[in-house]
Nucleic acid binder design. Structure first.
Lengths: 147, 147
DNA sequence: TTGCTCCTCACGTCACGTGAGGTGGC
DNA sequence: TTGCTCCTCACGTCACGTGAGGTGGC
């Protein structure tokens, strides 16, 4: 119930037990906790070729680059892309240059995605409008659903 | 390629070949066309207990009540409910009284659903905002994605 | 020995899509 | 016989959830 050391600790001090080899590695639980996703999700992304953590026996060891990559995957999801789309959007990542391209979106892709989301937004707004109408109808009928 | 007799005909003149018995019945294709859904969807709703068309051998015959029921199902989907939720929302339909309750939403359910949709709307709006920012970034960088 | 973290199958969920293979009436 | 509409399996898709059963180090 102590909330004092909540989140950033996992960022600053990852996977102490695997840090001995100079490179800091994250366990699957480290990343799951930091990004508030499940272990299953991490393994699923790997099965889809989005993540390729090192192995130490059966254990997955995520590097700092893996962690960055994961943040891009989750960013892509927030933007409404499918995992297949995200896969191609971050395909040219880790290109030996140490650069972080992030999601490589073209202007075309931006526009198409915005269009898609605008349509979804419109559908939701229409639904909300109708539900509000239904709600007031339920009130004005007799003051309640008395039948 | 003749578009003159497009849609409403199916409403006014349903399933002529099964109309002989006084009651007009709709075929699965009649309803699929009228509501712009697939045959598969109709059969799926039936498998989930949402629809129970008469049978003539293997053929499905949908009554006017079935058609009304289907319209409620699709309305429920528009409002963002799952099929399981819709199932219970229209459970007390066809209650021998000829009344059409439609979706039996309580005020509580209205409010909860509106909340859900508002959250979804917010997520989408945030995504759109970020995509617009990304888009302008792509423009102001060098006038294009020139590496 | 118990407890924790990790692992690999593998089936379940949601709302259908998509063939495969077969039937019935014009 | 061809063509159309209808049918029943049954596997595939999407993004995981959810046990089951087992391992390894403190």
């Amino acid at each position: 119930m102590d909330l004092s050391g909540r989140t950033p600790q996992w960022v600053a001090e990852p996977a102490t037990q695997y840090e001995g080899n100079r490179k800091p590695y994250f366990t699957i639980s480290d990343l799951a906790r930091e990004f508030s996703i499940t272990l299953r999700a991490l393994r699923f992304y790997e099965s889809k070729g989005l993540l390729r953590p090192k192995r130490e026996g059966n254990l997955r060891l995520y590097s700092a680059d893996d962690r960055t990559r994961l943040s891009h995957i989750l960013k892509g999801k927030q933007l409404g892309f499918t995992l297949a789309e995200i896969r191609s959007l971050i395909a040219n990542e880790g290109g030996a240059e140490g650069v972080e391209p992030g999601l490589q979106l073209s202007r075309e892709q931006c526009i198409e995605q915005i269009k898609l989301l605008e349509r979804q937004k419109k559908d939701i707004e229409d639904a909300i409008t109708e539900l509000r109408r239904t709600y007031t109808d339920l009130y004005t009928r007799t003051g309640g659903p008395a039948d």
